[in-house]
Computed example of a mutant assay.
Amino acid sequence: MKSLFYALTALSLVACSSDAEKGDAGDYITRNDFESMVGWLPDAGTLTKAHAHSGAYAVVVDPEHEFSLTYNAQLGKVSPHKLKGITLEAWVFLPDNKATGVLGVQITDPDQGNKEVFGDGIKLQEAVKEYNKWVKVSKEITLPANIAYTQNLKVFLWRSGAASPVYMDDISIKGVE
């Protein structure tokens, strides 16, 4: 009976080995379908029922809204390990070729007045080849080695000069350790 216990314990330890050790995507930092955002924000102008991939809500940027709602969290609070990168995934809706939005990622330093120390993202006009339908976009972004736990991760939809509205829904950010 003891040998069975030890075998199961050893097997469970192997099964619990972290994907992070292999450099694979780790735990989700956040996932949002924007269903529970109504009423929580002072300016929910980018929250819309006009188009949604799932549920009733999505976010939109258009000539009246340069940036969507922004995910903003201190790196030390989103992962117990220093992140090597993130995997960014979302569903986007571009009505036509005038929709030039960017799903942006920034690392900012609050000790330097929230100065950007890193920026990247998904240029939607390059990533999306079909218009007037929901398309899944994804990108693994490598973060610089000199990022600090005290810096902030920001993720947002940016209009980037789009003449047509750009919609985003069902976003997920997953850590790569």
Rank of each mutant, 00 (worst) to 15 (best):
G161L: 07
G23Q: 00
A20L: 11
G26T: 15
N97T: 06
K129E: 12
D170V: 03
G76T: 04
M168R: 08
G101R: 02
L13C: 02
I141S: 11
K2N: 06
Y6S: 07
T48H: 14
E130Q: 05
F156D: 12
Q151F: 07
I171P: 13
S36V: 06
K98G: 04
M168S: 06
T150C: 05
I173E: 05
V135H: 13
K115P: 02
N72Y: 05
A90L: 05
D170N: 11
P63I: 02
T70M: 10
H51I: 07
F5N: 03
L69I: 11
L157P: 14
V38Q: 07
N97A: 13
K22E: 07
C16K: 09
T87F: 13
L157Q: 13
A56R: 09
Q125C: 09
W158R: 05
F93H: 11
A162V: 00
P95D: 11
V105I: 15
E89N: 12
G23V: 04
E130L: 01
Y57C: 13
W40Q: 05
R31D: 00
A148C: 12
K98D: 04
V78A: 02
T30V: 08
I173T: 04
D96L: 12
T30F: 09
T87L: 15
K123C: 05
F5K: 03
A58Q: 07
A163L: 12
R31K: 00
S54Q: 01
D62L: 14
G119E: 14
V105L: 14
V166W: 15
N72A: 11
Q74P: 01
N32S: 06
Q125G: 03
I147D: 00
V105Q: 14
A73F: 10
Q125F: 08
T46R: 02
P110V: 09
V135I: 14
R31S: 04
K154W: 06
E177H: 02
L11F: 15
K84V: 00
N72Q: 03
Q125A: 10
N146C: 02
P110T: 01
W40V: 01
K174E: 09
D19C: 04
L124K: 14
M37H: 04
V38W: 06
K133W: 13
D27I: 03
Y57P: 03
I86P: 08
K2M: 09
G121S: 05
A7V: 08
E66R: 01
V137S: 12
V60I: 14
R31C: 03
L124V: 14
R159C: 06
Y57N: 08
A162T: 00
D43Q: 14
A162Q: 01
Q151E: 09
E126L: 02
I141G: 09
A56K: 11
L94W: 15
A50M: 12
H65T: 01
D169Q: 01
R31V: 01
W158S: 08
G121F: 05
Q151R: 06
L103C: 04
G113H: 00
K82T: 08
K133E: 10
S160M: 03
P95L: 13
K77Q: 07
V102Q: 10
A20Q: 08
G161D: 09
